[in-house]
Design a protein around this nucleic acid. Sequence first.
DNA 1: ATGCCTTTGTGACATTTGTCAGCTGCAAGT
DNA 2: ACTTGCAGCTGACAAATGTCACAAAGGCAT
Lengths: 210, 210
Amino acid sequence: MRDQLGVDVSKLRIVLAEDQALVRGALAALLGLEPDLAVIAEAGDGRAALALVESLQPDILLTDIEMPLMTGLELAQQVKTLRLPTRVVIVTTFGRAGYLRRAMAAGVGGYLLKDAPSEQLASAIRRVASGGRAIDPELAMAGWDGDDPLTDRERQVLRWAGEGKSSAEIAGLIHLSEGTVRNYLSEAIGKLGAANRVEAARLARDKGWL
Amino acid sequence: MRDQLGVDVSKLRIVLAEDQALVRGALAALLGLEPDLAVIAEAGDGRAALALVESLQPDILLTDIEMPLMTGLELAQQVKTLRLPTRVVIVTTFGRAGYLRRAMAAGVGGYLLKDAPSEQLASAIRRVASGGRAIDPELAMAGWDGDDPLTDRERQVLRWAGEGKSSAEIAGLIHLSEGTVRNYLSEAIGKLGAANRVEAARLARDKGWL
DNA sequence: ATGCCTTTGTGACATTTGTCAGCTGCAAGT
DNA sequence: ACTTGCAGCTGACAAATGTCACAAAGGCAT
C-alpha cells in the first residue's frame, strides 16, 4: 500500500535520533530488517530531530538521551507540549531512575536500555505505535524505589567533590565555610550509605540525581 | 563457495564484541547488509570474545573498548601475544590519545570512532582484512600529544581510587600493603600535577590512560 | 660478585576528611 | 510573642590521606 509520494503507508514511519553516526546507521539497518518498519529520516542532534518530527509527523520518534543541542528528554517534552501526534521511544545507555522518571513525566511511550536484546526493539516500537507502553522490565521494577533524598546544597557540594575538589576549594566556590561544606558532605554520605565523598558522588550520579 | 560445514568461505568471517546488546545486534544487522561480510559469532564481554577468537580463528575481530571482564585493548593485546591470525578492528566512543596509542602498540589494524559515518565500517574492515590499516583520520592527526607517565601499578591503584575505594580496600584488592598503595597514589598524584587521588584519577581518565 | 634498577614495604608526620554536638539568625506558622 | 524549622557556622576529635626518607628483596647487566 503506497500513498501518492510512493511511501508505503502500511509501514510504521520512524524518525531516528542518535548522535553517534555509526550506531545510528546500525540501528537503521536493524530496523530495516523488519518488513513493517521504515526509517524515513535520521538526525544527529536533538534540534534537528525536533524539526524532522514537526515536518514529517512520523508515527514514532526513536531517540537517544545524551545528544548535542537538545537531549532526548527535552525532545520528548517538546513533542508533548507541541501536541505532535508522534509517539516517543527512548533508547539509552543509562538506566538512571531520574531519567526514567523525567521520561515518564514527558509522556514517552517506551524506554529501553541499550543492554536490552536487539530483538526487543522492533516489538517495543510496535507496541508503542499501537498505543501501548514498553518500559524496560529491569527499570520498571528497580526504578521506582528511591526518591532523591538530597538537598540542593548537598547536590552542589557533591558535584564538586566528585571532581576532586577539597572541602576548602568547594567552600570558596560556593561561598560557604569549610566546616559547612564538610557537614553537607557528611550528610550526603550518610543519606546515600556511602563510605566517603567519592563513593557518594558516584552513587548519586548513577541514580541520575547528579 | 562453501566449506564442509556449510560456511561460505569466500566471505570475511567476523567475530563481534560489544557489551550493549542492542548496539551489538544493530552492528550485526549493518554488517549483514554487506554481501562479502559474515558475522559468525558475537560476545558481550572481553573474555567470551577471546574464547571465540581462539576457537573460531576469524579473519576479523570487531570490538568495543569498554567492556566487562576484559577491555577491548587487553583483548587486542592477547590476540597479539597469543599470535592468533585474527586482525583486530576497534570501534569506540572515545577518541582518547592514550587509547589509540595502546591500540597501536597492541598491533590493531583499525581504530574507528562511533561518530564515524556508518558506511565507513565495512570498508575499514575490508582494508584491515587485506593487510592494511584503517585509523580514524581525526585521531591519526590529533592523537600523538602527551605520553603516559604512569606505571601499571599506578594505573591500577588510580582506577580503584577513582571509584571511591579507600587505601586499605585497594590494598586488599590487589594484595599490597596499605602503605605501598599510598605511595603509588602519591607518585601518581605528583606525576599528574593533581591535588589528590580523585583529581588524579579524573585527569588520567580524560587522557585515556585509565 | 658488584653495582644498579625496580618493586614493595615501613615508620613518621602534617593535612584533610568524616562525625558529632551545639550555636546563631532568620523566616515562617500558630 | 512564641515556637518550630532551616541554613549556616564553630570547635573538637578520630580516621584517612598525602608526603617523605629509607630499607629489604629480586632481577639484570657488566
